[in-house]
Amino acid sequence: MAEGLKKARVVIREDECKGCGLCIAICPEGVLFEQKHLNRMGYHPAGYRGEGCTGCGFCFYQCPEPGAITVYKKGYVEEEVA
């Protein structure tokens, strides 16, 4: 058995983000932020500060884009990614 993730982590696919800001507004830890640069669609994509995600998933369920946000919780085993 591979060891799971030690810390939760959120991954944002910037290309799919429409910059609506709902994930940033909902994040209880305040670890998401609006990035300065523009993505291919002309939006300021959300970004993760790289620390502090608890894996609560609030952002995932606020984000309207099916693939824009992925949340890996503590204990998640990378190999599960098919």
Binding site: G4, G57, I69, V71, K73, Y76, V77
Partner: peptide, 8 residues
């Protein structure tokens, strides 16, 4: 709950 929230 699943250990990851991924595109369905």
């Amino acid at each position: 709950m699943a250990k990851a929230l991924i595109k369905a």
